[in-house]
């Protein structure tokens, strides 16, 4: 297999814990979230623009705490309330909901109240901006029982204040914002990704000017950075496959960075 094919796959956008790169800013966010979960809070809001590492962080927390406490990760939002409550019923009561039956919300609230002080359940809700207002209201009522703790992850959009202001104004006790990383961190991120798979030579060819160029397109966004790096190695892969290929393995190609940027629409020609 082409080495460039392997290289491009390093930058496939994933929330796999094995792909997690420990950066200074990510470590800070992790520690803050970890502390918040340990405290008796009802709601924790995790927000940031798409591609700032919210899902990776939630997954990382889930993987690290899943054997220590009752923690559950809802990676994809359940559009149908029935489906959400079926899932919720199972993890709270530890029983399957019988077929052709629906969860009685009032009974569920009563049950949650009955386990308060006995059990402490943490639910990590990713992509929470996908839930409708009615669902969010029910989540709020569930958190009020004191038995369920929610970590709500939302995209930082124009409606970012919706949850905080309208539904959970008095209940969200902790907010954690994730931001794009700096140029230095981007360099560390790319290098660590490559070194993790033992691509020392390639990592060594990526210099400051290349990082600067990549950063100018991606603004330090993980997802955008992954996309650019993936495209760059895809272009490498193409030229490597051409007869009489003249790829200079000692130098990282600025041309390919620019071509990737054109392909991804960062540069309008």
């Amino acid at each position: 297999m082409s080495s460039y094919k392997l290289l491009k796959n390093i930058f496939v956008d994933t929330i796999d814990v094995d792909e997690y790169i420990e950066l200074e800013s990510a470590l800070y966010s992790y520690n803050t979230l970890f502390d918040s979960i340990s405290r008796p809070l009802k709601m924790i809001l995790l927000f940031g623009r798409p591609g700032t590492g919210k899902s990776v962080l939630l997954n990382q927390i889930y993987q690290n705490l899943k054997y220590q406490r009752e923690i559950h990760y809802f990676d994809a939002p359940s559009i149908e309330p029935r489906e959400f409550f079926r899932k919720f019923f199972k993890l709270v009561t530890l029983k399957e909901l019988p077929k052709n039956t629906e969860v009685n919300f009032t009974t569920l609230i009563d049950y949650c109240k009955s386990i308060r002080g006995k059990r402490e359940i943490t639910i990590l809700l990713d992509e929470a901006q996908m839930y409708d207002e009615q669902m969010l209201e029910k989540i709020r009522v569930l958190s009020d029982t004191g038995a369920i703790k929610f970590v709500i992850s939302i995209h930082k959009t124009q409606n970012e204040d919706l949850i905080a202001k309208e539904h959970f104004q008095t209940r969200i006790w902790e907010t954690i914002e994730l931001r794009n990383i700096s140029k230095e961190e981007l360099k560390t991120y790319i290098h660590k990704k490559l070194l993790k798979r033992n691509y020392f030579d390639i990592a060594d060819t990526i210099k400051e000017k290349h990082i600067h160029l990549i950063y100018s397109f991606t603004k330090g966004n993980f997802r955008e950075c992954n996309k650019v790096m993936f495209k760059i190695f895809e272009i490498y892969e193409y030229y490597e496959a051409q007869p009489n290929s003249k790829i200079d393995t000692k130098k990282f190609s600025t041309k390919f960075i620019e071509m990737a940027a054109i392909r991804l629409g960062y540069i309008n020609v």
Binding site: E234, I235, Y238, K255, E258, M259, I262, R263, V269
Partner: peptide, 16 residues
């Protein structure tokens, strides 16, 4: 794979 020749042309245009 998308059209690399087209991408190359665009890149030359961009450099110009």
């Amino acid at each position: 794979m998308y059209d690399m020749k087209e991408l190359e042309k665009k890149w030359f245009k961009y450099k110009l």
